[in-house]
């Protein structure tokens, strides 16, 4: 059992928190793990990525080798597309529909959607809307985590447990919203996955 995951997004979207939750869940299950953060100038709205690898055998390279990722999890739709070449032929792109247009020349949304749909296995999730529905606009990252949950090869309750630990010490309402976000994401992911 081995999973190579690329997380992609824009500074401030909570990408590294999602990576931490997955990593924690994997470690709790006794997997070997390595997780690279690329957050260069993220606070200024640039791209952020993380390579997350876990396996029941030792993990050597910190970076996911090109063409071997099982999953690209994207909190921003253009950022997801930026890394599809890292996916293995059977890998899946799970991406939010969120578009952060903070630079010139952001491609038209139809062009981006068409390119996403050209990826053989993809799941598109309206994370911002589901996050609102869950009761916290900030929980879009956890919606995506829910949508991608079936691809990690980790039991759901270990992810839920990791979310609970991540939000321990925060207001109970914050945890509730995030657990709701996870569930909504999970449902949306299952719907999206069956369609494609």
């Amino acid at each position: 059992m081995k999973r190579d995951v690329i997380l992609a997004g824009v500074g401030g979207q909570g990408l590294l928190s999602v990576a931490a939750v997955i990593g924690e869940a994997a470690i709790a299950r006794g997997f070997f793990l390595k997780q690279v953060e690329v957050h260069g100038m993220a606070q200024r709205g640039g791209s952020v990525t993380s390579h997350l690898r876990f396996s029941d055998r030792p993990v050597y390279s910190d970076l996911v080798p090109d063409g071997e990722a099982d999953l690209v999890l994207a909190l921003e739709i253009l950022e997801g597309l930026r890394y599809v070449h890292l996916l293995s032929p059977t890998g899946t792109l799970v991406t939010s529909t969120a578009a952060v247009k903070n630079m010139p020349g952001y491609p038209p949304e139809e062009t981006i959607r068409a390119a996403v749909c050209a990826v053989p296995r993809h799941v598109l999730v309206d994370a911002p809307r589901l996050a609102e529905k869950a009761g916290s606009a900030q929980s879009a990252n956890v919606v995506l985590l829910g949508a991608a949950a079936p691809f990690f090869g980790l039991p759901q309750d270990s992810l839920v447990g990791a979310i609970k630990r991540a939000f321990a010490g925060r207001a109970p309402a914050v945890l509730e919203a995030n657990l709701a976000a996870f569930r909504l994401g999970l449902e949306a992911g299952e719907d999206g996955a069956t369609k494609t």
Partner: peptide, 30 residues
Amino acid sequence: TPALVARALGRRAGAGIPPSSVPVPRPPSL
């Protein structure tokens, strides 16, 4: 990168999904 080293060792690097030409750079800004 793992791929560069694999190639130098004569190992086949994973052939993944072709890169998308749609993304434009997102340079950092103030």
